[in-house]
């Protein structure tokens, strides 16, 4: 299980630069980033190397955030690599709330972040196909 930090940002120039600047100043490594937005605001979702430290720093900075457990799944970094995972979701009629990818690529693998409402069911189904989600340790995340 990997911890994702979601941050409320107003949709105006400089917001993203400001928060990534704070992370840089504190030597925090961003491993994945994704934004969902409306015309007025956005939700910045990110995976960092040290979630606890990041949370503390951002809370001190007055940001509104939430911590969410997400699944990270390694898939073959090749055409069609994502298909078995998505087929599993379809097979179990499991909705995807959102997904995005980690910057990391190793040994011919790419890493996808998944947030699904029915997580336990998803993990169980993945196991029947011999797929196991990555742990935070495997990804070098604190």
């Amino acid at each position: 299980m990997v911890h994702q930090i979601s941050v409320f940002l107003e949709n105006r120039a400089g917001q993203l630069a400001e928060i990534t600047g704070i992370l840089a100043d504190n030597n925090i490594d961003l491993r994945a980033i994704s934004i969902a937005e409306t015309s007025d605001y956005g939700i910045l979702r990110m995976i960092v190397d040290d979630a606890e430290k990041t949370t503390n720093i951002l809370l001190q900075g007055g940001y509104i955030l939430s911590m969410t457990p997400v699944l990270v799944i390694a898939v073959p970094d090749q055409p069609g690599g994502l298909v078995p995972v998505l087929s599993t979701l379809a097979e179990g009629s499991i909705d995807i709330e959102y997904m995005y990818s980690l910057f990391l690529h190793t040994d011919g693998k790419a890493y996808m972040v998944f947030r699904v409402p029915e997580e336990e069911k998803f993990v169980a189904l993945l196991a029947t196909h011999g797929i196991t989600p990555c742990t935070a340790e495997e990804l070098g995340l604190g």
Binding site: S6, F8, I43, I64
Partner: peptide
């Protein structure tokens, strides 16, 4: 606040 845009 929540990580889910739908909820927000």
């Amino acid at each position: 606040f929540s990580d889910s845009l739908a909820k927000v």
